[in-house]
């Protein structure tokens, strides 16, 4: 995948996030921690308001990657994917929030490309860059 150049931005996207999305994710994932659903529970845990599941945010990043792979027609599988949940994604009841995602090429090898992906919400970088490695299907 030497057609990719380290440092190049390969996609940017933004996803709105509402409380209802967190409720749907809690159901689908089985993670029913109330800090993702209920303001009082979030405050009791020392948080300013309800926060998204870290895995919901990572899931949105995976969606951005999967959509980009589909659009660009890459014949590749995601073989490695990591993230650190650096700051919470705070989701107010009114209006929700937005997660903005930007992916840059970190490394291009003959049969793989590694992306460094930032996610921002509420003016903060919420992930210490996520990394995704796509490997050509043999």
């Amino acid at each position: 995948m030497k057609e990719f150049t380290p440092g190049d931005v390969v996609f940017t996207t933004a996803f709105p996030v509402q409380r209802a999305d967190l409720a749907a994710y809690a159901e689908a994932s089985g993670d029913h921690n109330p800090i993702h659903l209920d303001r009082a529970a979030a405050e009791a845990a020392g948080l300013p308001d309800v926060i998204a599941h870290g895995m919901f945010t990572m899931g949105l990043v995976s969606r951005a990657v999967v959509e980009w792979v589909a659009e660009s027609g890459l014949e590749a599988s995601l073989t490695d994917f990591s993230a650190r949940f650096a700051k919470p994604v705070v989701v107010p009841a009114e209006g929700g929030t937005t997660v903005e995602i930007e992916a840059k090429v970190r490394k291009a090898e003959a049969d793989s490309v590694e992306l460094a992906i930032t996610a921002r919400s509420g003016g903060e970088k919420v992930l210490a860059p996520a990394r995704a490695t796509l490997t050509a299907r043999s």
Binding site: S29, S62, R63, E67, A70, F81
Partner: peptide, 26 residues
């Protein structure tokens, strides 16, 4: 399908038919 829908992934053509990348966390 429920997991993919919760992340808005249901409309994405899954070329390989693989589960969503973070599904295994469940």
């Amino acid at each position: 399908a429920r997991f993919a829908a919760a992340l808005g992934l249901s409309g994405v053509p899954a070329a390989s038919g693989a589960v969503p990348p973070t599904y295994l966390i469940t």
